[in-house]
């Protein structure tokens, strides 16, 4: 149970993913499973693809067709609950928010971790973006079989 573990169950995770055929283009995946008073994802979205509505306690709803995968919501979400993903050939390419040090190097091979922080495979860091608001975003490519499991990278600080 999410409320006991802090980790979403596979069924819940699937419910926030669009059909994988749609993911030939990058799309936002919004892992906001709980009604909390918050709407910066909606405000940040330049195409109006994310709707929270007048009651900011409502969960955000994504219009997958309108989402361009621009990543603005990734760093705007105060809960760091949004990432962008696409499938490119046999790779799943993720852009995730990251607020730890050290940041990985672009091109580096890193461990990819699941929602419990456990390493589940490796990935290649394609892009590290530093933003003015100090939440970085990291784009990494990993095996497409990890589409529903991968959420972050593990960077050795040695």
């Amino acid at each position: 149970m999410l409320k006991e573990t802090g980790v979403a169950e596979p069924r819940m995770i699937r419910s926030v993913f669009p059909d994988s055929r749609v993911l030939v283009k990058p799309k936002a995946i919004i892992e906001c499973y709980e009604a909390i008073p918050c709407d910066p994802c909606e405000t940040a979205c330049p195409t109006g693809a994310i709707e929270v509505g007048a009651d900011i306690n409502a969960r955000p709803v994504l219009d997958v067709d309108a989402c361009t995968g621009c990543r603005r919501c990734v760093t705007a979400c105060p809960g760091l609950a949004i990432f962008v993903v696409s499938i490119q050939e046999d790779k799943a390419v993720f852009t995730v928010p990251y607020e730890m040090l050290p940041l990985p190097e672009e091109g580096a091979l890193v461990n990819v971790a699941d929602r419990c922080g456990q390493p589940i495979g490796t990935g290649e860091v394609r892009k590290v973006r530093k933003h003015a608001d100090r939440t970085a975003s990291i784009t990494f490519a990993t095996d497409k079989g990890l589409l529903y499991e991968a959420v972050t990278v593990v960077v050795d600080d040695g």
């Binding site: 802090g6 906001c32 979400c77 809960g79």
Partner: peptide, 11 residues
């Protein structure tokens, strides 16, 4: 939940 998930991702 989002705060809890952030921590869990860090192991």
């Amino acid at each position: 939940q989002v705060h809890a998930s952030k921590l869990r991702r860090l192991g």
